[in-house]
């Protein structure tokens, strides 16, 4: 780690002010991504702005939506009776992230701000058509993800919460990278107020994406069999020592089908 300044503001305004005008300043949420990066000296922030005292954690469920504060950790989402009732797929997704230590620290806001191409949450946000709220504005999921590790967030913009419309049916299935256990291919399927949406994480070169061919097939018939004729081109798939692009493309089909089966 390089030396860096540290501040723990107690209001959102102070946090935004601390981040403003300093390109080298970094927000700190659960630190499950940022701290390893600092440890490996891959990042040299001027200062770290700790978001833990801003009152950004908590879960609110209404008749048609689930809103999760940006600083809510994965373990809390996984254990929430309200989330389990309203969007069980979301609670299950959170419960499948990393290990118990990671889930006790890592947050939904950090995960979305980071937009790791193998992260789980982006698929839920995109498939459920969620809305991301920041200190400045609300951003629709379809506008938010802009390629791996790239989002619509501007410099110094802080995510405050994420709001998920409650779907009629949804499920997330993750085919884990055997080593890291992030998603090698993760598919979130949903049908509900936002229509039929299928989001794929881990597989694509550009990070999370909507699987439009599967959406079209499932819109006609919401059933596992509907996926049988759907294929996806390996051209834009990731390729690494664990899985080639054609294998990932194949897995997208298998995992989508399993997600539909799980969603019922």
């Amino acid at each position: 780690m390089y030396d860096f300044g540290y501040t723990k503001p107690s209001s959102l305004a102070d946090a935004v002010a601390a981040l403003a005008g300093d390109d080298e300043a970094k927000a700190l949420a659960g630190g499950q991504t940022l701290i390893p990066v600092l440890k490996q000296r891959l990042n040299k922030p001027s200062k770290v702005v700790d978001l833990s005292k801003l009152g950004l954690s908590g879960i609110t469920v209404t008749g048609d939506s689930v809103t999760i504060g940006a600083m809510t950790n994965h373990a809390t989402v996984a254990a929430s009776a309200d989330v389990k009732r309203a969007i069980p797929a979301l609670a299950a997704l959170a419960g499948g992230i990393g290990d118990i230590q990671v889930r006790n620290r890592g947050t939904i806001g950090g995960s979305l701000a980071n937009n790791d191409p193998s992260a789980c949450y982006p698929s839920a946000v995109l498939a459920l058509g969620a809305t991301i709220t920041t200190n400045k504005r609300s951003i629709a999921a379809d506008d938010y993800f802009q390629g791996m590790f790239t989002t619509a967030l501007e410099a110094g913009e802080v995510i405050t919460s994420v709001s998920f419309p409650i779907p009629a049916k949804a499920a997330y299935i993750k085919f884990k990278n055997p080593a890291s256990r992030y998603a090698m291919v993760g598919v979130f399927v949903a049908t509900g107020p936002k229509g039929v949406r299928v989001a794929v994480t881990g597989a694509g070169q550009g990070g999370v994406f909507r699987h439009t061919a599967a959406e079209a097939a499932l819109s006609k018939s919401w059933s596992p069999a509907a996926i049988d004729g759907v294929s996806i081109s390996p051209d834009n798939m990731n390729s690494d020592i664990h899985a080639s692009a054609p294998y990932r493309a194949h897995l997208v089909g298998v995992i989508t089908k399993r997600a539909v089966t799980a969603a019922g």
Binding site: P178, A179, S180, D240, I241, H242
Partner: peptide, 23 residues
């Protein structure tokens, strides 16, 4: 089933961390 120290053809260790080396 899992472990493999993979070098690329030039001698860079591709599985050089637990993110890529499967214990």
């Amino acid at each position: 089933l899992l472990e493999h120290a993979v070098y690329d053809s030039n001698g860079q260790l591709l599985s050089g961390s637990f993110m890529d080396y499967t214990m």
